[in-house]
């Protein structure tokens, strides 16, 4: 049990995917302009990352490792993740139009996100089992979501702030992200895996 809690604490705070591992930076900068978009993106990421961690674990444990093809895991993971996300999108569109309206446009966006692939590869590297993989993906996405929403809230305020002209837009965003990363360094050592 402690192990699972540790995985969560580690991925959400201590080894935050965005601010400590620097994965998934493009949606972090791209979708953080408005807080509604950030929330939609976070929920969709939560969904996709959990699902893709599990499917890539299954692929790796039952197909690639027995055949001795671990060196192709990157390729295989991309293939499986893309297919699973597509399928999810179709099923969701059919069965839950409301959920589709909230997450719809974000789902295909996340498919090729480096954080998604990073989580899948780190799961193999750290030899997680199925439950641990799912939890690792969930935690990574939760960490991504927390940071993304906090960042979006800050950027909404920054949009109204009196920023020096040369720093407006992306530069001040990147400086803010740097300061956030600095703050998240305070969590390092909280959990070690």
């Amino acid at each position: 049990m402690t192990e699972y809690v540790l995985i969560l604490v580690s991925t959400v705070l201590a080894n935050n995917f965005v601010l400590v591992r620097f994965l998934g930076l493009c949606p972090f900068m791209g979708v953080s302009g408005k807080i509604e978009g950030a929330i939609g993106m976070s929920v969709a990421t939560l969904f996709v990352l959990t699902l893709s961690s599990m499917s890539s674990y299954l692929l790796s444990a039952y197909v690639l490792t027995p055949l001795g093809l671990e060196y192709l895991s990157t390729l295989g993971f991309i293939l499986v993740i893309a297919a699973v996300v597509q399928l999810t999108e179709m099923v969701m569109r059919k069965s839950s139009p409301l959920l589709y309206r909230i997450l719809g446009i974000f789902l295909p966006l996340i498919t090729t996100n480096c954080a998604v692939l990073g989580v899948a590869l780190l799961n193999v590297q750290q030899q997680h089992d199925l439950l641990q993989s799912a939890l690792y993906g969930f935690g990574a996405a939760a960490g991504f979501g927390v940071v993304l929403i906090a960042f979006a809230a800050m950027r909404e305020r920054l949009a109204r702030a009196d920023v020096p002209i040369h720093f407006r837009g992306a530069p001040i965003g990147l400086i803010t992200a740097g300061l956030m990363a600095l703050a998240f360094m305070g969590f390092s050592g909280l959990a070690r895996l």
Partner: peptide, 11 residues
């Protein structure tokens, strides 16, 4: 599989 799903879950 995806082709089949696209048929099956067409909206």
């Amino acid at each position: 599989g995806l082709g089949w799903a696209a048929q099956k879950f067409r909206v």
